[in-house]
Amino acid sequence: MKVSPSYARLTEAFLAWSELHVSAPPKPRSWDSVQLLVGSAKVLDNYALEHLEKALADSNAELAPLGEPLKLNLGKHRWLSADREESYSDWLAWILQGMSGAAEILPLYALSDEVTGELLGPAGTVRREVRSQHGRTDIEVPIGKQGLLLIEVKVRNTGSELPSQLDRYAHKVADQHVERPLLVLLGTEAPEPNLDLFGFTFTSWEALCQRLRQYAHRVKESELLRAAAILIFCGAVEQNLLGFSGSPRRFRAMATVNYLHDWRCEV
């Protein structure tokens, strides 16, 4: 009897060969290109630093009688150091609790299209760290009679465990038979485009803070203290998670100038 060769055994060899494949001829090792790029970045940084003061002043004036939160150093507060995901979630949950409902909360996550009749209504009690067989969710906000906003908060780059985590939370919401689940992944960097997010929509911290700044700008006349608290939260996120600052670190001046310009564009 003729026996087929076991081709599967060759897979390992093919994989080893593919590792050896080089698509372009190797170039001599050199840092020349890097030094050229770094030199250009320094020129841009100097230019941006000249414009930063004006950008801070303009933003400061826009937020009067409050002020520009990037002028306040929030980088050394232990509550707000970069790896304190719980602190950021707690503060964000508190901010959401102060909002009236879907019409105010959902646009923060670019979910304005979802604000339809069935979702109109006040937000329920914002819940933190809800435990279930599927794990512990970061923030849950019941909205109206049929909606549930679930926010998974990330303050660092996400790892390979993210899809399975989101899958579990999507199942949790499905088990609850929520009619209008609104699933949000909040993070510093957008996940890989082809990654399955299991119905979650990504919102960046940068976009969220810009919208919160605009919100604080709108409510500062009537709710000065709440607006102040929201702006301080923005300042903490911007400095600790996004690297913006009134005294920016190397090569972050232009990013800060652009950021300050962008949030004011839609005021």
């Binding site: 770094v38 970045a41 841009l44 670190r249 090569f251």
Partner: peptide, 23 residues
């Protein structure tokens, strides 16, 4: 020499790349 330059330049280069992507 490549190693020494790399140690001295790596973070600055990484920051420049980040800024380039943002731009």
């Amino acid at each position: 020499e490549f190693f020494v330059t790399g140690v001295r330049t790596y973070l600055e280069a990484d920051d420049a790349m980040t800024e380039f992507r943002r731009l």
